[in-house]
C-alpha cells in the first residue's frame, strides 16, 4: 500500500534525503519549499503524511500547521515535524500547533522510520508479518 507524503522543507538537500528514505519504504512523495506551497499542495490533494520543517521563508512550519488544522481539522493529515529546533519549548509549540510527532535534525533512516512507526505509518503498520 502506497502512503502519500508531502515533504515540506526549504532545503533541497533535506527534501532529497527524506524522499530517498521514504520512497525506499514505499511512500509516494510530493515536495514543497515553504508553508504556502504546502498549503497549495494540500488543497490540491490531501496527503496521509506531512513531514514538516519549521524555519522556512514565506510561511514557516508553525503558521502552516495552524492554518492546516483550522481548515481541515485535527484528524488528517498526520504531521511529523522535522526541524533543527530541538529546544523543549519549541517542541511544545509544535505539538500545541497540532504536530503528531517530532523529529529533531539531524535525523537518519532509523529515527525517521521509528517515528513514523509511532504514528502508525511505519514498516510495521502496513506489514502483517
Amino acid at each position: 500500500m502506497t502512503i502519500s507524503a508531502l515533504v515540506v522543507d526549504d532545503s533541497t538537500v533535506v527534501r532529497k534525503v527524506a524522499r530517498r528514505i521514504l520512497e525506499k519504504h514505499g511512500f509516494s512523495i510530493r515536495e514543497a519549499a515553504d508553508g504556502q506551497q504546502a498549503l497549495n499542495a494540500v488543497a490540491e490533494d490531501m496527503p496521509r503524511l506531512v513531514l514538516l520543517d519549521r524555519n522556512m521563508p514565506v510561511m514557516d512550519g508553525i503558521e502552516f500547521l495552524k492554518r492546516l488544522r483550522e481548515t481541515y481539522g485535527s484528524s488528517e493529515p498526520t504531521v511529523v515535524m522535522c526541524t533543527t529546533e530541538a529546544a523543549q519549548d519549541r517542541i511544545l509549540e509544535g505539538l500545541e500547533a497540532g504536530a503528531d510527532e517530532y523529529v529533531m535534525k539531524p535525523f537518519d533512516e532509523a529515527i525517521l522510520m521509528d517515528k513514523l512507526g509511532m504514528v502508525g505509518l511505519g514498516p510495521e503498520g502496513g506489514d502483517a508479518g
Binding site: A86, L92, L95, E101, M104, D114, K115, M118
Partner: peptide
C-alpha cells in the same frame, strides 16, 4: 542524547 531519546520514545512521553 538527542539521538537516544528519538529511538522508541514518543515525543509526548519525552516532554
Amino acid at each position: 542524547t538527542q539521538f537516544e531519546v528519538q529511538r522508541g520514545l514518543p515525543v509526548r512521553q519525552l516532554m
